[in-house]
Amino acid sequence: MGLAKRIIPCLDVEGGRVVKGVQFVDIRDAGDPVEVAKRYDQQGADEITFLDITASHEGRDTTIHMVEAIAEQVFIPLTVGGGIRAIEDIRNMLNAGADKVSINSAAITNPEFVREAAEKFGSQCIVIAIDAKKVSKDGEANKWEIFTHGGRKPTGIDAVEWAIKMTGYGAGEVLLTSMDKDGVKTGFDIELTRAISDAVNVPVIASGGVGNLQHLADGVTEGKADAVLAASIFHFGEHTVGEAKAFMAEQGIEVRL
């Protein structure tokens, strides 16, 4: 008996539609977020994370309606990230049926926002999203820095120190993305994942770089992640969430089957 490691499919959404193409083998129009969420739910996903890349204000209202529609049919935890900048944004998402919100750049601009959010809504629904890149050279001690704007803009903030600070401010979970590995499909940055997981006392979700099922297992066994997040290996029908869980279970990892 023990807590299961979680597998979390991640969807990019824009204006209430899933973007970056999600192609399940037997679904044609996979842009409908409700259909996609239901499919992952049926496959045994432990949670679903939505990353809202909508720029316009009107588009964000559409995202709220999307969350409402999903929350009426999918009864597992839902996290929404992207564009969460104010207390009002959090309230809107939670009222729509999200269980957690992830805060990224707004925390860098104003760290107190995380403290205020955790005090108001509880740590359990505040996720700190950290996008980090390795900045140390070969032979030097490992060092990772926080980057914004899709990994283009350095902030000078040390990733491990930032994780400690933000969880101290009340963030109840860390969503950690390696900007070096994101989209590369060569596996998580294991050293980064382990460094953050060892440094904080809250659950850490590893993200960025999953290309096969072994990568997911490595994130847990070597990276010490409490949950693993992936997008493309699930989106294109390469693997189902169920297959990923069966694979992890074979390696002795406790999962919800």
């Binding site: 023990g2 807590l3 979680r6 432990d46 109840g172 659950p203």
Partner: peptide, 17 residues
Amino acid sequence: GTQNGEKLKVPHMGWNQ
């Protein structure tokens, strides 16, 4: 169990039996 000796995160978050 399988996680004997491991440090556990708090909150207890996720799916348990």
